[in-house]
Amino acid sequence: MSRSTEILLALIGAALVLALAWAVPWLRFVMTIALAKGLAVLGILLLLRAGQVSFGHALYLAFAAYAVAFGASVVPETLVLLPLAALGAALLGLVVGLFVVRYREIFFGMLNLALSMVFYSVLEKFYAITHGTDGIRLPPTTFAGQTLSNEAQGWAMLVLALLLSLGFGALIRAYLASPMGQALAGIKTRETRLEFMGISGRRVLLAAYVLSALMAGCGGAVLAMTTRHVTPALAYWTASGELVFIAILGGAGSVFGPFLGAVAYELTRVYAAALVADAWQMILGLVLLLVILFAPGGLWGMGRALLARRRSA
């Protein structure tokens, strides 16, 4: 797919999100959450390129969300909190990454899972600081110094999430095509060869890992400022699993996949929960099974195949 087609598709997608949020006001919240998760899933996609699955990336999302929650009482400014929280998550990603990039496959996945669960326990047990499972309510945050109405703040967060998604989408697309991204894909097929070409596979993976933590951090910060309530459940292993779920649902072949997957996931969740309150997880499970069995390229892969068929017809 050519670059201009992809830019066009991204803009159409962004316009659709805005139109949907305008037409169905309560979907504005859902869309913001979906994009925030999409950002974290973009990080999962990066690691998937190296053939590695992290079952613990909710750690970075939750870390940034709590950083925002604590920070909001000091500086309640969105445009300060968001970058600081994301950088904090990236820094944590660097420290954890130095350790976990030494491992591959199931060991990599499980170590990430273990570390995220340690963080979950810390959040849950240190009641005096974190209020345990009650979580922390966030005060309203200002936007560029302006105190906005709830309505305007909601729109501001959606637009912010949209801009971050477009920005990181473009960045990751370029990253994957660069030698850095191609070497990352080389980890999946022939890491030995990388080493014998003078490239450290660990460092290539570490760079991707830190980048993925940064994006998860951005997602977590947006999530915290949108829901205005953070709980340890953000760091629970099911939250990490959800990110991997969305990555597979959306498809790992393109930077569109995570966002497409996240929007589809959140919409399915909202509507399925309303229709069949007790069985919505089962519906999601079935959808995932069908995707794995019949559309290994995910929703994005299906969409692209349809587009290609129409063009050739």
Partner: peptide
């Protein structure tokens, strides 16, 4: 190397 970070391979 070192690589220009975002220039395609």
């Amino acid at each position: 190397g070192p690589w220009a970070p975002l220039a395609p391979l």
